[in-house]
Write a protein that binds this DNA or RNA. Sequence first.
DNA 1: TAGCCTCGAGTTCT
DNA 2: CTCGAGGCTA
Length: 800
Amino acid sequence: MTTPDLFAQDPSSPELARAHELRKLLHQHAHQYYVLDAPLIPDAEYDRLFQALQAIEAAHPDWVTADSPTQRVGGKVLGQFATVRHAVPMLSIRTETDNQASGATSFDMRVRRELGLTETDPPIDYVVEPKFDGLAINLRYEQGVLIQATTRGDGESGEDVTQNIRTIGQIPLRLPSGTPDVLEVRGEVYMRRDDFERLNQTQRARIARGDKGEKTFVNPRNAAAGSVRQLDPAIAARRPLSFFAYGLGEVRGGCSGQQVFATHFELLQTLKQWGFPVSDLVRTASGAAGLVAYHQSIGQQRDQLGFDIDGVVYKVNSLAMQQQLGFATREPRWAVAHKYPAQEQLTTVLDIEVQVGRTGKMTPVVRLAPVFVGGVTVTNATLHNEDEARRKDVRIGDTVIVRRAGDVIPEVVSVLLEQRPAGARQFSMPHVCPVCGSAAAREPDEVDYRCVGGLFCGAQRKQAISHFAHRRAMDIEGLGEELVSVLVDLGLLNSVADLYHLSIDRLKGLVIREEPFVGKGGVMVTKTVTIQDDLANKLLKAIEQSRRRPVDRFVFGLGIRHVGESTARDLARFFGSVERIMAAHVETLLCVPELGAVTAQSVVSFFEQAQNVQTVASLLTQLELTLVQPQAVPPVLDFGNLIPRLLVKGLLTRGSKATQSLLDRFPTPDALLAAQGNGSLIIGSPEETVAMALAGSPWPQVLEQLAELGASWQGAKALATGGSPYAGKTVVLTGTFASMGREQLEQRFLALGAKVSKSVSRKTDFVVAGDKAGSKLDDALKLGVQVLREEDLKDLPGQA
DNA sequence: TAGCCTCGAGTTCT
DNA sequence: CTCGAGGCTA
């Protein structure tokens, strides 16, 4: 039915000539579109040409040629693939597993030795290229027409997947004239990451629709392999595959690789001219140093590439040298693959445990057989919550795929169901706390199970204390989790208040842990680690120093739910003292910017518990907390924002239920003030005065005056921080800085009236990028946010 | 009320 | 770093 050579046909028919013309055009445009990624005509125009050709071919089936673009899609469903013997074996190349530079240098040394070079000889030229994570394919062209495509198989023979490979737009079906009579091009079929994501999305949609036999893929490599080995070419045609050429197989007649090209690099350039996609990451490199540099450079770009790679490949560039080096058994001596640590690995699930967090949140965690993935050994991975655990359906004994992709945190990607041991039971969250035995329940509309034990629960008590000692809270150096655990178990520490009653006598000689190790003569001995005087003194000194900390760190350290670092700072700035926060009512708390009903209620609930009040009161007698930021900016209450906020929060608008009840209870501001005892609606000396002056007036007049004052206060605030280009701006810091720590820099910006935020958005004014800037810098560039380097900050005042 | 923008909380390993 | 959810704004 098909004729291999187009020119064997009668050229006199105008329709036939048109078909010929259309094929030529379509080949050209396909190359522009798929390979060069620079279409010259709109898709619709391409489709129009395509349909015109289809129409002619439908009328004259005998005119259809093997290389016709219409033949990319089509063919029939196969029962199985035919096995084809390779004319030239598809060898594998040796892999350097070493993830250090030594992999590159040892290859260079080996090559030099085998070529008989000495140290005085010039460095060897190499071609370096990424090692794509896909599957190797051999493309056979005869008289310039693609006639067969085969998988690598065992290297000697592979499977005939011609039908499916034809559907890949990047692979030319016909070559320009002047190519060898027989030409085999080898390369990698792979799937781009974005194509992979899109494919899985549509697959999920199909599954949701109930389509039988559809599934999602674990990774792009599997998707590519699955698609190439798809028996139904119509399905394969829907799969977005890509191709990179990197070498040759059999070549006969016309020009022959060995004779025409002097180097591998020239060969690749020629393949590119013939219409094959060649990666633009391919480079030449000189000597071991060049290899090392390339390995590093690609390693750094690895996560940003549009496709997966598992390493890089080094090839001796000179074909003459390649010939001289020859082969060792089944591997070329002139090439080597230098792999990166795998980012995905298989391992088994040893156990699934439940951890209890500071807030009582119960988190299921899988214990894994140690596995080296992404450069580190992973033994744990979180399942986050019950829903997530159900979705992934991980069970003890399962074989799972573990990933450490662009991020750092290991994650279970999926379970290999076919390897599940019989009788493996589905995981379910326990309904009691695994630590203290209290009830554990999941609130409606929440994903998390929580232990209700509170500080009765050992896990929560220990973590509450650790949190208090945290670097960003009271910063008690040397008081780590292990030590806290020991002290709590011994009954020396029952609450954070006990910290300030510890003495050297009580600490000295306490057993921290028993450590087994191999002693003399291979006998196992247990070593008892105890607290030495040195350590005890250090710890006591750190505790002593922590007596003087800013109010906001203390508030953060209390561990009130929903009150993190930032909210603690807001609270401290607004109220000025812990006592005032303790006395505050929900209504007062709602006046704090950025603080809503949920958090306000949480604060009130915390101080409704007698135990907490007792602990805090005890602490306050022990501590000399310092005021928040006694710097340039006074704790100014922004009236301009306050009024709309009070309105929005329903405190000052008639109509809403909350307002109504508030107004019923407090018909005038002074009634509210009186009800709050020592607290006042507005805190801080100037504002307090204002509030007093207003006492007695009805709400509407208060509002009016507040509005007036708001304007002048904003002016005052601008004055206070005026002159600084950062006043009122939102700044995000990323990376590390040479002149000072990040926290210090953060303080500087806060002092200048800037807001330091943790994530970049369109509302961010500046991103300050230090060394090793992370993804926030990318975000900044993406969103067009102004980026400052450390040296641009020279004008930061207060740089004592 | 939806759709940002942030913050809080939990997690891993060197 | 990521997820979920609180708070604010259009």
